[in-house]
Design a protein around this nucleic acid. Sequence first.
RNA 1: GUGCCCGUGGUGUAGUGGUUAGCACAGGGGUCUGUGGAACCCCUAGGGGCAGUUCGAAUCUGCUCGGGCACCCCA
Length: 451
Amino acid sequence: MPRRKKIFSNAPKMEIQSGAQARQNKNVPHILKGFKDIMPNDQKYWQTLSRVVEKTAGQYGFQKIETPIIEDTSLFTRSVGKETDIVSKEMYSFVDQGGDNLSLRPEGTASVARAFIEHGMLNLPQPVKMYYEGPMFRHENPQAGRYRGLHQFGFEVLGSAAPVVDAQLILIASNICQEIGLKPGSYSIQINSIGCPQCRAEYKKELVLYYKAKRKYLCDSCKKRLVKNPLRLLDCKVPGCQSLKPDAPQILDWLDDSCKTHFMGVVEYLDALEVSYVLNPQLVRGLDYYTRTVFEIVAQGKEEMAQSAIGAGGRYDNLIETLGGNPTPATGFAFGFERMIMHMKEQEVKLKEKRTPDIFLAQIGQQAKVQALKLYERLRKEGILVYENFSKDSLKAQLEISNKLKAKYTLIVGQKEVLDGTVLLRDMDAGVQEIINYEKVTIEMKKKLQQ
RNA sequence: GUGCCCGUGGUGUAGUGGUUAGCACAGGGGUCUGUGGAACCCCUAGGGGCAGUUCGAAUCUGCUCGGGCACCCCA
């Protein structure tokens, strides 16, 4: 094939190929690493979860907000934190045609805070309660319950510092888990307070002091944490580091009076609400904006699963101010759709069965196809659930489909029926048929379906 | 970003250097040109990619891409 060779030699050489290009000589497109198509068969999980979120939000007076999935990069560097992993190494950032630095959102709270400021929501009755759901993007290596394209829903309350808000938010998170069908013992609520920046700084100093003295017993990554992220020292999994934990200073002992009072308030409300929770002094959060109350909903049972947090949240009293708004205390939480659904599947949560069609409409012949097309519209407008496969010509094939779909009845229109002005009605269970006047089909079918 | 395991039609799999790459399910068509839930027949479709070893590679080696899991970190 010398001719082909020549064509190739003229083509520009592809020195650098993207992953997607290198993969396919077949010229078949491929989904990006870490992204998932949500297939028709899975939609029932997504829809039930989404409905529970919407319903719960409504009950507690939260209104929906939708923000763009692309924002100015600085929104995230200023809110989530420049040094956090999410922003420093996981963000999908790019410069657009106009030279602006943009990023795909890695989380939802920053945008909500931005919208709060931008739309002057401080003039609304406080606090402002909003919820959101949608895709988020983080460039990390995929593993169980972790994707580059993930979906979250979140609840945010802006404009109140009251501990009762934190408690109610935790209650809402717990209610959603129950409402979705997770078994009561299958998840736990872990709570902690990481104080305000002032008392946290004091605590960090003390913590670093403690661990520095034991530096030689620390694992390599903990040595890095010592300077980079001291709070993380507390949840290291290496046994050697774990053994140092019991004697380490605890954040709760370092809270200043107002932070302490606040946290005690949260805990008291939770007790009064009989929400069971676990006080976890080691619980810290990765985003810079968190203050005071932090919590996580952790799925139990699957010990081997590393990502057990299905939802998490906390207070972010300084975020709005950091972004240039008036000082506005706020608190909220977010859940991962994928993680939630993973546990729904694990626990075999029962979902509403898909409705089987009332009627399958079959047709034979060109004239009949036209007639059936019209009949379909009449039935549809009457609210009857009708399926069809107008692209099939053989009656046998159509009956097979009807059977597979478990339709109660099949309506058959052929040449003969068109001429007679009738329709054949077949009862799929009984296997008996009767002739119905075309004009009376909708009335007859409604009658039949009511039985 | 790092480490470990894995990569055969749409799905589940068989095949350990030479096979027309087999089977099941799903899909399409037919036997039956107007009757399903049965049978039979036919068809579509596959070794992630690129190199190397070899007379010969799905099978061995390297790289790469992807998947799974874990670390870091996070929902």
